[in-house]
Amino acid sequence: MLIRIESDDALAHNLNKPLLRYDEKGKFSCPIYSGIYFFRIMVLEGLYQHVPDHLWLHYVTHVVDRILRRMRPAQPEDSNHEFATPFSYLLYSVVAVTTDWIEDALRVTDDGSALSSDQTEGHHAYISFQAAEALGGVMQSALSSDKLTERLKVELLENILFMLRRLTRKHHLAPLVRSVLAYLMNPYGMGLNAKHIDAIERIYAKQDHVLRGDTKVFANVLATAKNTLAVGASFATP
């Protein structure tokens, strides 16, 4: 799939065309869409079978980087569309798939369980914690790119906030929520980046006020990240 994105010029040309009916019909004959959703199924199967391995899910960061490399620059009229091109639809799909891997921890764990990122026995959610790490890398690439419209960036973060709202309703998933938030601010624990934090703050400010009210935990961690940058301290990740 990565090779096709990188080297298939005809495919890239088609994926940079207007969306038309790609999201309704064309995606089913697209090797990239098929690859993303085969990957989704494979990793979800691992999660539901409590496989103590990330099953290469971190490759989603490479998929996003390849897509961004081949996407055409954003055009003013792109903001009139939810997804201007198939490539933008595929990028959203990658984020949605990654959040699926995280959110399905709701379905494979028990309310009374004590979860941790390194737990690999019993009804664990090791894959969900790994997906939380990957999501941070995916969003850093997406939010820093000038090939995405502001509208699409808002939708990407909105998807994540909806997920967080559902996860925070389950007390036993608090460690997973903390992991998602930490890696969104500090992708792969490589250190805070002021431009990335500024981008998150800008996009978060454009979210629906009700959703922001329901996800104050996000705002609190964002404020902590900003304060950490201001004083030059280190930002802890799980």
Rank of each mutant, 00 (worst) to 15 (best):
G46V: 09
T109G: 02
S88I: 02
S88R: 13
F87A: 10
D104L: 11
T120W: 01
D100N: 14
Y126D: 05
D110K: 15
P73N: 06
T109M: 01
V95T: 15
T120Q: 15
V108Y: 01
D104T: 12
Q119T: 03
D118F: 03
D110L: 14
Q119I: 04
S88A: 12
Y59F: 04
E77M: 10
A131K: 13
H81E: 12
Q140Y: 13
R69L: 12
W56E: 13
D78G: 05
A131T: 10
R107H: 12
D78H: 14
V138I: 15
A84W: 08
T61V: 09
P73A: 10
G137L: 10
T85M: 07
L57F: 01
S144R: 11
D78K: 11
A84S: 14
L47F: 06
R69D: 11
M71V: 04
G137F: 06
L68V: 07
S145Y: 08
V95D: 01
E121Y: 02
V64C: 11
S88T: 15
H54Y: 03
E103P: 00
N80E: 11
L115G: 00
P52S: 07
W101E: 00
G136L: 06
S128Y: 08
T120C: 08
A74F: 04
I127S: 11
S116T: 05
T61H: 03
V94F: 02
G137Y: 07
D65C: 00
N80T: 04
L90F: 02
S79R: 13
L135P: 07
P73H: 06
L57N: 10
D111S: 13
R69T: 10
E133Q: 13
T85G: 04
S88E: 10
L135Y: 12
P73Y: 06
Y126H: 14
S141P: 02
A131L: 08
R107W: 10
L68S: 06
R107Q: 09
E77H: 14
V138S: 04
G137S: 12
F87Q: 08
L90S: 02
P86S: 08
Y126V: 04
S93L: 01
L57K: 05
T98C: 15
H50D: 03
H54R: 10
H62Y: 08
E103M: 11
S79Y: 03
R69G: 03
V51G: 00
H123D: 09
E77N: 13
M71L: 12
G122D: 09
F87I: 00
L90M: 01
G137V: 08
I127F: 09
A134D: 14
W56P: 00
P76I: 07
S117Q: 11
A142C: 15
I102V: 14
A105P: 01
W101S: 04
F129R: 05
Q119N: 07
N80H: 12
R66K: 13
A74Q: 05
G137R: 06
E121K: 05
S117A: 14
S145L: 08
E77D: 14
H62E: 15
H54P: 13
Q140R: 15
D100F: 12
E121F: 01
S144I: 02
V138A: 06
H54W: 02
L57H: 07
L47Y: 05
Y92C: 04
D65Y: 01
M139G: 04
L115A: 00
V63R: 02
Q130K: 15
L55T: 04
A142I: 03
N80R: 15
T99E: 06
D111H: 11
S128D: 04
R107M: 07
E121S: 09
T109C: 08
R70A: 02
I67E: 03
T61M: 03
Y126W: 09
V95P: 06
